[in-house]
Design a binder for these strands. Structure first.
Lengths: 263, 263
DNA sequence: TGATGTGAACTTCTTCACAGCC
DNA sequence: GGCTGTGAAGAAGTTCACATCA
């Protein structure tokens, strides 16, 4: 039980959406896509680019794929060889039709009357999301939050992995977090270019976030996860996903019941 | 520039939606609503309850209100007395029609030909969101992330404020974060009941999250912000908003450009 | 028989366009 | 004239229902 909330908090987004259509095309590999980008400068919350790509995969669908992937990995760990969309529905809370439709954007991975091979589907999803090669990530801002994020990420994941941490505070530079030495902010561009990093996490104070974003983009970053409470302005083609504790709490406040649910 | 992403990551949600319709009704005060709740047990991502409430305010709209509120407070700080929906659009990235429509769910707060009085709209939004009284929040899990969240929250906000922190690690209990003493997990129910806390943040390991959620709900919590990477099962009427670093990074990976945007 | 894959119906949300009022 | 408030149109996403095939 539990209905779902849309997930608002997040702000801008600018990006072309790679994915093919319902056709057995290029499987929406994070490349093969247009190179151009996005449309408006508005917060549409669900629109993406009208790029050269034939049919678009809705962003909402992309955002569900990692959920499916996690469920599949759990199922695989429990020695399931075959899973049905109904199994995945039970684990994820999404409807089975929704799941089949999302998967179908990228091709036909299942067997009618049977289901999906767990390991095959895991591989497919990892490929679609671009997780079949390690995705190196830079984190900017090694305060309490940034540090917590690095620890969390590095003790668990290898597919999306923070590999560089930057801060402008001399007192932090040189310190180590989970084996990573905090580097000076000035080194940001060079390191990011060198390592070919395209994805970055911003965990700096609000006032510094926009400038950090600008520098990241200039250095080649095209996707940003932003924890600073500001709407970042980024050029077309750059994707920003925001996570804002305050906004989350404030919108949840709306749903609080007055009475202790004595009904 | 910057289109927007839907924000998927988040998981369940179960809740009745208070808000009135387009009518000048009860202004969607976080009460006045049904007491009952939710429909399905599925992840719908945008549905809420078909409760006694007349017309529903879409969850997506609720999630935008805090964004408007923040923009308004900025504008007020800049001594703007009157703001138009176009001003807010410029600040937030949402379209002016969208903003007017969202506000209109709760009544007519503006003046035709003029705009909205900044301070009036701030007050209205705070009231609609239930932020006109302080919203006390409990946080469970005082690890790196939990600690970072407490620090962030307490050094900034008074409207949504963490007032109690719990952990099960004896080594942490008794320690202080921003003036709050970490309390033992066993005290959770009593403290939450005593303080009438309805909103909680979960920052414990995945394995412990479901049980924590169960206890929180039993103690009277009806809205949860969950940082643990699991889909919490909660009874109807309880709202869960998830924030999952890994899912965010994995879906962002999809949008990474192969080439350094040399286009 | 049974579960996938998918067009069509439906629902929800957004944008348009303009009437209404200051 | 200008900006709000809102019905109507349109777009996007979800669910339904079933043909399809192992």
């Amino acid at each position: 039980m539990a209905a779902r909330v849309p997930d608002p908090g997040d702000p801008q987004r600018t990006g072309r959406s790679p994915g093919p259509g319902g056709e057995p095309g290029p499987y929406g590999e994070p490349d093969g896509a247009p190179g151009s980008a996005v449309p408006s400068e508005a917060n549409d919350d669900s629109r993406v680019a009208a790029a050269p790509a034939p049919a678009r995969v809705p962003d909402v669908a992309i955002r569900r794929l990692p959920v499916y992937l996690r469920a599949l990995e759990e199922l695989r760990a429990e020695d399931h060889e075959i899973v049905s969309s109904a199994d995945l529905a039970a684990r994820t809370g999404y409807s089975s039709e929704q799941i089949r439709k999302d998967l179908a954007y990228f091709g036909a991975f299942g067997t009618r009357g049977v289901g999906y091979r767990c390991d095959v589907l895991v591989d497919r999803l990892r490929h679609i999301l671009g997780l079949d090669r390690e995705v190196p990530i830079a984190l900017v801002g090694a305060g309490h939050l940034g540090t917590a994020l690095v620890r969390y990420n590095r003790t668990r994941h290898r597919d999306v992995r923070i590999v560089a941490v930057f801060d402008s505070d001399p007192g932090r530079i040189g310190q180590e977090i989970e084996g990573l030495v905090i580097q000076p902010a000035e080194a940001m561009e060079a390191v990011i270019r060198e390592a070919g990093i395209k994805l970055a996490v911003i965990a700096v104070p609000a006032a510094a976030a926009q400038e950090v974003a600008r520098r990241l983009v200039e250095a080649g970053v095209t996707a940003i996860l932003n924890f600073a409470p500001v709407s970042l302005q980024v050029p077309p083609g750059v994707v920003v996903q925001n996570v804002d504790l305050t906004l989350e709490l404030q919108s949840l406040a709306y749903y609080i019941r007055p009475e202790p649910a004595t009904g």
